[in-house]
Design a binder for these strands. Structure first.
Lengths: 231, 231, 231, 231
DNA sequence: CATGAATGAGCGTTCATTCAT
DNA sequence: CATGAATGAACGCTCATTCAT
């Protein structure tokens, strides 16, 4: 994706940034199709023609906006070294970060998915984004498997796609479709499901003790979570 | 959604059906925006003006097409009584059916998601579809919990959304984004992840024995599945 | 050049003809670039959108208009059998017809020349037009040569191009650039120059006796033509 | 045509000359309409805004470019005193020079013709160019008539226009439309046609003896020229 | 003098929808 | 019922020209 941005003066950089910002807001508010170049220009406080000084087309603008969102996803969802080395805690931290990163870019990423359906240039961007997350997840799982902390019979890539998809999809349902849930409960559930799905065995005892039904009984140390009523 | 279909002659019914079928095909092939009324009419073999005898607008046509797809999803994904009463087997059957039902309607459902973003009428249809599946899943889980076969601390609705989302999202990645995987492996993984995530304890011993790491050691009775290499 | 004209109703045919006529007039009056689709539609009494029911583009409209003009040139400039078999008389008749045919299509043909410069589709039309006239002229000359009535050392094609060009160019100067001359004098001069250039020898004595300077004298039976003063 | 060129520094003169040269090249390569001020500036190595320091508009630039081309036509096509006083030889020399002068300015002159159609300022320039050549031709013919070397019944101006047009038009067909011919043959034909058309009688015997059919026979002292086959 | 950012009028084209026949 | 001609609002994009720095 070639970008019109060589040799800009300070003023030019300001205008370009204003258009980019205005574009991002407009796309988020109204969706790709509903956004008119005029809307973006009005919001950025420039005339119609100025837009084309900085972007070749509406599509090009979206390309940059989406690219920025993708970049933010990458950086925002890295589980830093602050988080303790406990696997469960790290999964939990990752889920939390992912939910939040998605929350910040939800609308744009949905748009990217839609546009990518019919445009190979955007399809590339989308697949790249996806691949980074899939790789990261698969790598994490493989390490756990090697440490004997997770079921070694699971295919790392497939599993990463499936469990990563669980989180992503929930984010969509929660944030875009209005499913009511509080963040803490959501992250707690996601993490427990994830951890147990891969058979995660905590080396330490930190984190909620994963449920293991040790027999046919069915009783155990459960606390009733806030049960959600149907709307 | 009011439908223009009262009192049609036989000929009229045939024309209407042709338009509906043509519309469905056109939407699936080219996507909502790219479809022109002309395309639909040409495919149905009627003149441009005739379209408006049967549908109020392009949107109305899509409404019916999407409604039909939703209906198919409902009927296609009911796990029949043929499947044995084993919980694991029923989850597996449900996953297989859901993957296949999605495969048959993938494009239309993605379109419905997209259109629903900006149109409340379609949003209703989408939420209705989602709700049926969520209810069905939550109900199933609650039953297992009551039978002591699944972790009773999980919120049924939240869990159903998350695990259902896992399947749905994987279907999208697999079918729409071209992730390579064979159906058997996919269903196997989805089912194992699902079953273990809820702490499913098979009353019988049918189905792959769920992996349970019974201690700190990490050895156990696992069979190596066809490990998939990264692409 | 594909034409949008299959299966038109009487009404459609009328509208199309109106647009064609309106287009021709507009092009002739204002030139290709200055003509707006709106102008054409207003003149034809239809709305803007209707234009595109019948023509794919402004260029397509011009293609048909130019094609019609070219067709008229062909038919209008055929020296009929009414003209006596005298070579000189036939050349004269041809020149007169050509001048008049050009007069009727001058502006359009100049536009065709201009557009053809940058567009191969129109270049083809232009070359075709030119070729027909060149062939016709070369053929005529060859016949005269075979009859021993014209200089056999002249290359028929080259000569036809040059003398034909003389007439065409004069038509342009006369009609488009406003050079003042009356038709009779113009045709008379063109014909005499043409005839003498190829060494035409009249078999009969009809027509103005071609000037032949039979020595160094320089006297002869000449009538002073209306001498035109410089402007 | 007022020109922005008073009181330029050396640097200014260089910039102006660069723009002029760049403009000429751009016009010749892409045609008036297709040339963007940006193209010219880029080619001249100056910024967009600088253009308007030296020229009032794109049209003004073309005016100067065209003016220069017209000037070159004037100087390039003067038959110098080197050419012997033989009339035929001088006509031949003039034709050759004219063909070559046209070759050097063909594209620009065609553009001038086109633009002059709708712009009176350029129309003036065009008519001036034309008038100079017409005058020159008419004057030459008049001299020959007075010397008794050419048909005195021909209107000098009209004849000059017609025969001059023959040469000019051939140049166009040859150079712009790609008619194949070699220069020598072309000049030979043009000159023979021209000479015989005005009934030129050579005082000397230099040059190809003009074909004169001196009776009804049709034989004569002709030499077969390289006969060109139809393409 | 040079720069290049900003301007904005202008135009070709699309297509869902209406309606006379 | 079917037809298909007519409608017209809407929008992306171009580019010559201006002007503050």
């Amino acid at each position: 994706m070639i970008v019109k941005s060589e040799a800009l003066t300070a003023r030019g950089r300001r205008t370009r940034a204003a258009l980019l910002q205005a574009g991002r807001e407009a796309f988020e508010e109204h969706g790709y199709d509903a956004v008119r170049i005029d809307d973006v220009c009005a919001r950025a406080g420039v005339s119609h023609g100025t837009f084309y000084t900085y972007f070749d087309s509406k599509e090009a603008l979206f390309g940059e906006v989406a690219g920025a969102a993708v970049g933010e996803m990458f950086t925002a969802s890295v589980v830093g070294p602050t988080v303790p080395d406990d696997p469960y805690a790290r999964v939990e931290a990752a889920n939390l970060l992912y939910l939040r990163a998605w929350a910040a870019n939800s609308r744009l990423l949905r748009m990217l998915e839609h546009i990518a359906t019919g445009d190979d240039r955007f399809r590339g961007l989308l697949l790249e984004l996806r691949e980074v997350f899939v790789r990261r997840g698969a790598e994490g799982l493989r390490r756990l498997q090697e440490q004997g902390l997770a079921d070694p019979t699971l295919d790392p890539r497939l599993t990463a796609i499936m469990l990563g998809g669980m989180v992503e999809h929930f984010a969509h349902v929660w944030l875009d479709l209005g499913e009511r849930a509080d963040e803490r409960t959501a992250v707690d559930h996601l993490t427990r499901l994830w951890a147990r799905a891969i058979g995660l065995t905590s080396p330490s005892t930190s984190g909620p003790v994963p449920y293991v039904d040790r027999g046919q009984g069915g009783e155990g140390c459960m606390t009733e979570t806030d049960r959600k009523e149907d709307r």
